[in-house]
């Protein structure tokens, strides 16, 4: 591996773990799905604790999926990902913006993620909702809220 690719790999790993971009200001904002996320969405999810349980289940399924688990094994830190995803999903479901990670664009810029890999994460998200016995309708609120990030994440 040449010096340039080593640097890129380290940068990507750092970005994905959120360490490099931590700041006092959140690097990502709430999205604006139409016609809006119901005000009781976070409550339906069981608050931040429920979102955390879902994030744990999400990474359980992601790490079992051979279409995407190598990305996370190579670049990611699942514990850190669960922490950041809990913050991100809590925010988009109507909670406070305490997200400490990188912006979606920055975090995924060098990962060369394609549509199939993105959809694999969406499938893992639905599996995680089932795992924590979250109603499909409530689950779709987070899909609606995260969907606008698609073009920031899928770069291939």
């Amino acid at each position: 591996m040449n010096r340039k690719s080593v640097t890129a790999t380290l940068l990507a790993a750092a970005l994905l773990s959120g360490v490099a971009m931590q700041s006092a200001f959140a690097a990502e904002e709430k999205t604006n799905p139409i016609p809006g996320i119901p005000s009781n969405s976070l409550e339906m999810w069981g608050g931040k604790d429920g979102v955390h349980e879902w994030a744990v289940a999400l990474f359980h399924y992601i790490m079992l999926d051979t279409r995407i688990n190598f990305l996370f094994k190579e670049f990611g830190n699942p514990e850190r990902q669960i922490f950041l995803n809990t913050q991100l999903e809590t925010m988009v479901l109507g909670g406070p913006n305490e997200y400490q990670g990188a912006s979606m664009t920055a975090a995924h810029a060098d990962l060369n993620i394609n549509m199939e890999q993105f959809n694999a994460v969406v499938e893992a998200a639905y599996n995680a909702c089932e795992r924590i016995n979250l109603h499909y309708w409530a689950c779709n609120q987070v899909i609606a809220a995260l969907a606008p990030f698609t073009d920031d994440i899928v770069t291939r």
Partner: peptide, 10 residues
């Protein structure tokens, strides 16, 4: 257009 993921657009 994208039927599925452009939830913030009409």
């Amino acid at each position: 257009g994208d039927a599925v993921y452009t939830s913030d657009s009409l």
